[in-house]
Design a protein around this nucleic acid. Sequence first.
RNA 1: GGCAGGUUGCCCGAGUGGCCAAAGGGAGCGGACUGUAAAUCCGUCGGCUAAGCCUACCCAGGUUCGAACCCUGGACCUGCCA
Length: 419
Amino acid sequence: MTDILDELEWRGVTAQTTDADALRKAFADGPVTVYAGFDPTAPSLHMGNLATLLILTRFQRAGNKPIGLVGGATGLIGDPSGRSTERSLNSEDIVADWVSRIRVQVEKFLSFDGPHAAQLVSNLDWTSEMSAIGFLRDIGKHFPVNRMLARESVSARLAGEGLSYTEFSYQILQANDYLELYRRHGCTLQVGGSDQWGNITAGVDLIRRVEGAHTHAYTGKLITKADGTKFGKTAGGSIWLDPELTSPYAFYQFWLNSDDRDVIRFLKVFTFLERERIEELETAVAERPFAREAQRALAEELTTMVHGADEVTRAIDASKALFGQGSIQDLDAATLAAALAEVPKATASLGTTYVDLLAESGLAKSKSEARRAIKEGGAYLNNVKVTDEEYVPTSGDLLHGRFLVLRRGKKTLGGVEIA
RNA sequence: GGCAGGUUGCCCGAGUGGCCAAAGGGAGCGGACUGUAAAUCCGUCGGCUAAGCCUACCCAGGUUCGAACCCUGGACCUGCCA
C-alpha cells in the first residue's frame, strides 16, 4: 500500500500538517484514529465538505479508524473562521433537523464494518452536559486569551466588524471536541479544510496541556477554479449533496461542465480513480479535449459515489436525451418523462403562454426576462427556436400528449407537464 | 468629543433640480465561435395587464410644476484632530 501522505500529496490535497515526520511515523506504527467535523450550517453538506469527507474516507481506506463528527453543539454557536460577519443563530429545532440529515450523508462515505470500522458522533453529547463553571474552570483555564486573539479567524474579525463572545468561544468548543475524542477513542489526528487550521491546532494545544500527549493536525487545500470564480457554485446557487436540493442530473451536469484546466485536479481530489487512470485522462484532455473524456469520468464517478449507479444512468440518459442530436419527438414516453424528471419542471394547462411557461418553470426569473430570452433568440420549445413573444403552445406541440420541453440558451432545460 | 466626507441598481462606481430606470466597469443572461470547456467578439441586463404604467438612488418628512440631486430630522460608515 502506498503511503497515504504521499498519496494525498500527489493528489494535491494537502494544505498543511503538523510535524510531517511525526505524522508519517504515526501512520507507520499502526491504525490512527482520525476525525473530521461537520457543522450543520445548512440542511446538507456542500462540495467543500465533500472534499474534507473524502480525505477522511481516504484515511480509512488506508487502514485507519475514522470518526465522523456532526456538530450538534458547535452548529448552535457558529464558527467565525473565514467569515467577515457574525452568523445569525439558528433555532435548536432547525439545527437538530440538519444534524440528522447530515449524519446520513456522512454515513454514506464511511465503512462501519471490519477492524477499521468508522464511528459517528455528535459533539452535543458531551457539550450539552457541560456546566458553565466546569467549562470555565476545566477548559477555559487552558486558553490564553492572547493566543485566542492571535488566531486568524478572530484577528481578521477584530480588524473588521468584530465578533460576539459566542463566536469567539467557538475555537474552545472545537478544541474540547478533539480532547474528548482523544480521551474517549484515542483520536490523534484531526482533519479539516484549510480554514480549520487554527481550530484544529487549538485542540492539539489543549490536549498537550491537559494530557501531555502529542496529537496531529491535517488540513486540505481549498478547492479553486481556474477562472477565479468560487468553486461549488453555479448560477442557481450552491451544489449540495442532498438530491432534494441539487438533483442528480444537475449534480452530474455540474461536474461534466468542468473547465479543462480544472478537471484533472478535480479527478485527483474527488475520485478514487488510480494514478494510471488519471494520467490516462490527462493525456486525453491534452490530445482530444473535444471528447471530454475526463469530464465524463469525473461526472460519472462522483454522481455514482454520491447518488448511486441508478441515478448516474438516469442522469446520463437524460443528458443524452436532452442534448442528443436526434429529434426530441423521437424520444419514447418513458425516456422523456425520466429526462424531464431531472430538470426544473412546471405543471400548467393548455392555453398558457410560452412566456408564462418560461417564467413558471424557473428558466426565466420574470416574464420580462422570458420575453427578452425570446427576443435574443435563446428560447426554445421542443428544441425549436421560439420567435413569437406571444406564442401559445397548442396541443400539436405536446409530446406524448402531455409534455413540453423548454430550453433557455444552450444548456438550461426545463419541462412542462400539461395537467 | 471636535472637524470633514460618504451611503446609488447583484457588486464596484459616475451623476448634484427636468434630456435619469440612472454613465462606465464587473458578475449574470443570450448570440457568434466551439467540445454542454476556456478565451474572444456582439447584444442584453428593475417589474408589469408593455409605444404606456408601476417601483427604485439609506430611512422619514419638506420645498418645487418637477428631486437620486435642494432643505429638516434620523440611522449607519469613513478620514482627520483630540
